[in-house]
Simulated scan of single mutants.
Amino acid sequence: MIPFVDLKAQYLSIKDEVNAAIQGVLDRCEFTLGSEVAAFEKEFAAYCQAEHGIGVNTGTSALHLALLAAGVGPGDEVITVPFTFVATVSAIDYTGARPVFVDIDPRTFTMDVNAVEAAITPRTKAIIPVHLYGQPVDMDPLLEIARKHGLIVIEDACQAHGAEYKGRRAGSMGDMGCFSFYPGKNLGAYGEGGMVVTNHPEFTRTIRMLRDWGAEKKYHHVLKGYNFRLEGIQGAVLRVKLKYLDGWTEARRAAAARYDSLMAGSSVPTPFARADVRHVYHLYAIRTRHRQAWQEALLAQGIQTGIHYPTPVHLLPAFADLGYQPGQFPHSEQAASEVLSLPMFPELTAAQCDQVAQAVLALAEPVAGAPANTALAGAI
């Protein structure tokens, strides 16, 4: 079996360091926040080329608190994309603001920046670009639009740890950047975790209070806050793993390059990476109109795959109250019906990449002038 992601292989490679770090937290009894979290906040913020980091319990909470720190609330609108994990939109909803969608660029799966200005109204307060699959949005024109209209930009970098746009790290370009440390992420905790990075001291102060019941000091509650603190054990684990992140990222990029090379010239649409970005390949998503058949055929050969994401948020029952209809965001809807994520993790071997690519090519329609791959392609 070739797994979609192999968390055990990564753990075994750093087991002794991780176990020692966890034991240190247990010995010091620093279970919530504490010295390991504080150190990780500084180290990860520096990694992201940002001044401040505020650790929280999830990436969703990072987005939620960033929006609140920006002053977003009932009656406001926040522009984002419907082709994302539901947490992006849920965080907007938690504040009482209205999510407003724009479509994606069909090549990159990220926000179509050219569609943003038309979506701005007097109620627009912020924009959340989503660096989906590990590729940054085209940020310079987006930031120019935001400055022109006085809008806050909050980067959803939950899948983009270490990704770069024109040499700048994801999370450092907008007013705030939000990360998830869910176990399967490029930098994953052994549980839940998230962080907001920013260069703004006032946003930092507000989010630090909001994550800990709105208190600036114990039992002195300045704001109506939340219990969104990052646990000490997660901070310790993430500090260990951060040291290896760039190496793991290059392993992901090498696996993606091998997939690209093996499937080059075929009818399989492989991921498009902009020339001015460092794509970190949290996911490697191909496209096919025969997704269910392909997924079943690959699984029959011992190859696990994923779908990210099968339904754009504007068509989910949970957000039917927004009033969007099928056909309003055609690129997002088409992507949601076609994307198929292949195995992608740092420990993926060249032989495994070859096996996956060969299995995919056997399913693909032959290119004109080339021999058919297998009889299986005709069956699909």
Rank of each mutant, 00 (worst) to 15 (best):
F329H: 12
K217G: 13
I120M: 07
L342E: 11
R287Q: 15
D112M: 12
K166D: 02
A255L: 07
V360D: 06
E117L: 00
A21N: 10
G191H: 00
I286N: 08
L143W: 12
A189M: 10
A66S: 15
E231H: 14
Q49N: 08
G247M: 02
K8P: 06
Y309L: 06
V356G: 02
V197N: 04
Q334Y: 03
G378Q: 14
L238R: 13
V280G: 02
I380Y: 02
E202R: 11
Q23Y: 11
A39L: 15
W248Q: 10
G34S: 01
L283P: 00
I286W: 15
A97S: 14
G225H: 10
C353Y: 00
L143A: 05
V116F: 15
E296W: 10
V339E: 01
L363T: 02
E202M: 12
F179A: 03
V5S: 07
I307F: 07
H282M: 13
Q234L: 00
P122G: 05
V237W: 14
S341N: 12
V222P: 00
V25Y: 07
T95W: 12
L142A: 10
L223V: 03
W248F: 11
H161I: 01
N114D: 13
H221F: 14
A254F: 11
M111A: 03
I207A: 10
V102Y: 02
G193Y: 02
G71K: 00
D112C: 13
A38N: 03
A377T: 08
Y94A: 03
A336L: 01
G34H: 10
L299A: 15
L223G: 00
G34I: 07
Q358W: 05
D175A: 12
D276T: 09
Q292L: 14
Q49I: 01
L230P: 09
K8M: 15
V240H: 01
I145P: 08
L230T: 11
Q234I: 00
E155V: 07
P183F: 06
Y182S: 12
A46G: 11
G369W: 06
T95M: 10
I307Q: 02
E365D: 08
P3C: 05
V313D: 13
K224A: 11
V137F: 09
E250P: 09
G323A: 09
G24V: 00
P141E: 01
G177E: 06
G323P: 05
N186F: 00
E216F: 11
T198F: 14
F31G: 08
S90G: 11
R253I: 13
Y281S: 03
W248D: 14
D6A: 14
A372M: 07
R211Q: 11
I303M: 13
G306H: 01
E347W: 07
R278C: 00
S341E: 14
A359H: 04
Y309G: 04
V130S: 01
V237M: 12
E338Q: 15
S35P: 04
G73R: 13
L223A: 06
G162W: 03
A97G: 13
P271R: 08
